[in-house]
Computed example of a mutant assay.
Amino acid sequence: MKAALAAKVRQQRGVIETEEATKNAFVMPFISTILGYDVFNPMEVVPEFIADVGLKKGEKVDYAIVKDGEVQILIECKKSTEPVKIEHASQLFRYFAVTNAKIAILTNGEMYQFFTDLDAPNKMDAKPFLVLDLNDIDDSLIPELRKLSKDVFDLDSIISAAGELKYIGELKRTLAAQFHEPEDEWIKFLTARVYSGAYTQKVREQFTTLVTKASKQFLNDQVNERLKKALGAPSFAQNDEAALAASVTSAPVADADLAAADGIVTTLEELEGYQIVRAIVCSEVKPSRVAQRDSKSYFAVLLDDNNRKPIARLHFNRTEKYIGIFGADKEETRVPIDSLEEIYEHTVALRATVSSYL
């Protein structure tokens, strides 16, 4: 169900422009299909819920979810075109203190932030303990989300786990940010473990490049291993001289790469797409022979890092995504895709392209 809702969000986000449309298209289906409550039963889901707070009279929170006759969950919605920010949660903060609810949700229909009162009793925390992104679902969170569903609703269990969830989530997001764009402290921390010389400005500049490249290669390797296991592909040993040489990057080479990549941003989605293509064609060649090369207009997947041997091109730098497939004449055919999973639909063509170069 979560996958179906995520697909709906991807397909319809372009035409959802108001808060009401966001609630109808995304939030109500979330309450119904994911949490399992009847959105048309006012004894379970109360829209435009009112609870007077001090001098604030008649203010409303978008939804209150009732379980066993008590308000248990409060939901505040913003339109999908806006990012989710804590500044949008003023009503949630006020209502949290005057109702029995122990869970508050702030959402734009795509991102769902779950709050409770870990820091002070009956006062909503400023930071969520759980963040669900329908565009990038973390499956490890699904069992915790399930505890809030109507059939199970184990509030004590999720509250007891909320502290760990909160800090694990923050740590994961912090690590992701460091992998994407490492900060000086992170660079210095890693440099000190592999370099014994003085940490000068020149060394910092060189290792900024090296840490960034090493992070991307590490993520590539992790994703590739998971994909190979999922596809049942053979695991080739990569200890031959050419593969070893390719895995070693000197500072001068890294500097040259950085200069060449000026203005080019390699996204995680492109890297994931590359790893999917790589995993597909490793039935024909060793994974070490499948290379990537990013440019401003497309992300290329090549055999032997040779421009004359293109396997695929990922055109992700635009609203409509395409995968470029190559035939026997090496002419590119662009095929629109809505998700990375659709790359698997071109398995036969991708393998045939690689086989034609062998």
Rank of each mutant, 00 (worst) to 15 (best):
Val27Gly: 05
Ile311Ser: 08
Leu190Arg: 01
Asp139His: 05
Trp186Phe: 15
Glu48His: 06
Tyr344Arg: 04
Leu231Val: 04
Arg146His: 14
Asp338Ala: 10
Arg318Trp: 14
Leu171Val: 05
Ala260Gln: 03
Lys188Tyr: 07
Gly109Leu: 00
Ala161Gln: 06
Leu106Pro: 02
Thr191Phe: 08
Arg308Gly: 00
Ala279Val: 00
Gln12Cys: 11
Ala245Met: 01
Ser288Leu: 03
Val194Ile: 15
Glu70Thr: 08
Asn239Pro: 01
Ala214Trp: 13
Asn220Ser: 09
Ile187Ser: 07
Gly232Thr: 03
Phe189Asn: 00
Ala101Thr: 00
Glu82Trp: 07
Pro143Gln: 04
Thr116Ala: 01
Glu342Cys: 05
Arg204Thr: 12
Glu181Val: 01
Arg173Cys: 03
Asp294Asn: 12
Asn220Val: 05
Thr212Lys: 15
Ala261Phe: 05
Ala242Ile: 02
Arg334Trp: 04
Glu284Leu: 12
Ser247Ile: 02
Glu185Thr: 07
Val61Ser: 08
Glu76Phe: 00
Ser297Gln: 10
Ile16Phe: 07
Lys147Thr: 03
Thr209Lys: 14
Val53Arg: 00
Ala3Leu: 04
Thr209Gln: 14
Ile168Leu: 08
Thr33Pro: 02
Lys8Val: 10
Lys147Leu: 08
Tyr37Leu: 10
Val253Met: 15
Ser140Ile: 08
Ala328Phe: 15
Asp52Ala: 00
Leu165Val: 07
Leu219Ala: 11
Leu118His: 00
Thr209Glu: 14
Asp125Phe: 00
Ser288Trp: 10
Asn307His: 15
Gly163Ser: 12
Asp154Trp: 13
Gly109Met: 02
Glu284Asp: 12
Ala233Pro: 08
Leu5Glu: 01
Glu20Arg: 12
Lys321Ile: 10
Ala176Glu: 08
Ala237Cys: 02
Leu134Glu: 02
Met1Asp: 12
Ala261His: 02
Thr353Gln: 12
Leu258Val: 13
Lys60Cys: 06
Gly58Ile: 02
Tyr37Asp: 06
Lys78Tyr: 01
Ile323Pro: 00
Lys67Gln: 03
Lys123Ala: 07
Phe218Gln: 11
Phe115Trp: 13
Arg313Leu: 01
Asn122Glu: 04
Lys23Cys: 13
Leu132Ala: 14
Ile31Val: 15
Gln238Ser: 15
Glu181Ser: 11
Ala126Cys: 06
Thr33Phe: 10
Pro47Gly: 13
Gly169Ile: 07
Ala349Met: 09
Thr116Asp: 04
